[in-house]
């Protein structure tokens, strides 16, 4: 097997064969899921804990469904019901989880590096479900799977990642994955929302949608949180939409068959116009959700096997 790590903490550092392995396996789970069959013996007797320090119905549900379809016992722990609010540290939580003999730990946390810290202390295989502004590896994998199924390949495609790249873990994971697989990746957004020296991650930076989207096969929009306006990074949502919101006109700068993606949840009228988001010919946003479950099944499957090899 070409995926050799115990955890999935980041896309950065994964080699192309490891990514290809996860995507191929996920592809098989897409077919299994569509056939209505399940594979409930694979993770039978295994415990998967969804440890969410930030709310995310979408990602948590996706992991929950993936775990259940593979037969795992799935437990959801969210910050509002756990003792983390009562002064318990992240590492106290780790020791508690070890005592529960958790096999697979899915972690979402508001701080970059929190899953890596947990991974040092827990016995379970840790899957990063989004940490701060660092990475969100399963999102990048599901985006790649969506692209590969629609375009038949990933290598050589031009991908424009647009919007609040500064605060986006989705953008970082996608940049690492798509550049590793040989895409021409551009990031497009206002200068105040592009991180310092982003070009050194192997992408080109644009502040103008027309230039950034020219010749793009894929237009990936990012969510803009309202607090970015209150912190003064952009003056207003209407100004943002005017220059960086994706509408039919701006999509026209990309290739005629360019696909529109969004990790969700969308702010309609801020970063994306409903006309584009709901266009079945262009938008693959719903398909991304379906791919999410398959990709997470592939990740759980792979990590549970590498865990067994360790033992």
């Amino acid at each position: 097997m070409s995926y050799r790590q115990k955890h999935l903490l980041a896309i950065e550092g994964l080699e192309p064969p490891a990514i290809a392995h996860l995507l191929d396996l996920a592809e098989s789970y897409v077919l299994l899921n569509r056939s209505g069959r399940t594979q409930r013996d694979l993770l039978r007797g295994r415990t998967l804990i969804n440890l969410f320090f930030e709310d995310s119905t979408r990602t948590r549900t996706s992991f929950e469904l993936a775990g259940k379809r593979l037969g795992a016992d799935v437990i959801n722990m969210s910050v509002s019901t756990s003792s983390v609010n009562k002064g318990e540290t992240l590492l106290d939580t780790a020791w508690t989880l070890n005592a529960m003999h958790c096999d697979l730990l899915v972690v979402r946390h508001g701080e970059s590096g929190a899953p890596a810290l947990l991974a040092q202390k827990v016995d379970a295989a840790v899957i990063n479900a989004g940490d701060g502004t660092h990475e969100h590896p399963t999102q990048a994998l599901l985006d790649a799977l969506t692209i590969r199924r629609r375009k038949g390949r990933i290598e050589g495609l031009a991908v424009a990642i647009c919007g609040d790249v500064l605060h986006s873990r989705v953008a970082r994971s996608n940049i690492h994955l798509l550049t590793t697989l040989g895409c021409d990746v551009r990031v497009v957004g206002p200068p105040t929302l592009l991180p310092a020296e982003i070009e050194r991650l192997g992408v080109r930076a644009f502040h103008d949608m027309r230039a950034g989207l020219e010749g793009a096969d894929i237009v990936m929009m990012l969510r803009l949180q309202k607090e970015r306006m209150t912190r003064g990074l952009v003056p207003s949502s209407r100004e943002y939409f005017r220059f960086w919101g994706l509408d039919a006109e701006k999509l026209g700068y990309a290739k005629k068959d360019a696909l529109v993606m969004h990790p969700g949840p969308m702010n309609r009228g801020v970063e994306i116009d409903s006309e584009v988001a709901d266009d079945p010919a262009r938008s693959v946003i719903k398909e991304q959700v379906e791919m999410g479950v398959a990709v997470r099944m592939a990740v759980l499957d792979t990590l549970s096997r590498s865990g067994r090899n360790d033992a």
């Binding site: 950065e12 970059s112 590096g113 940490d131 701060g132 502004t133 660092h134 990475e135 873990r169 970082r172 991180p195 310092a196 020296e197 982003i198 050194r200 991650l201």
Partner: peptide, 15 residues
């Protein structure tokens, strides 16, 4: 320190 490493790690930078 602000720069490509902080960008990779997703850490808020200090110029």
């Amino acid at each position: 320190t602000e720069g490509d490493l902080a960008t990779r790690l997703g850490l808020p930078g200090i110029p």
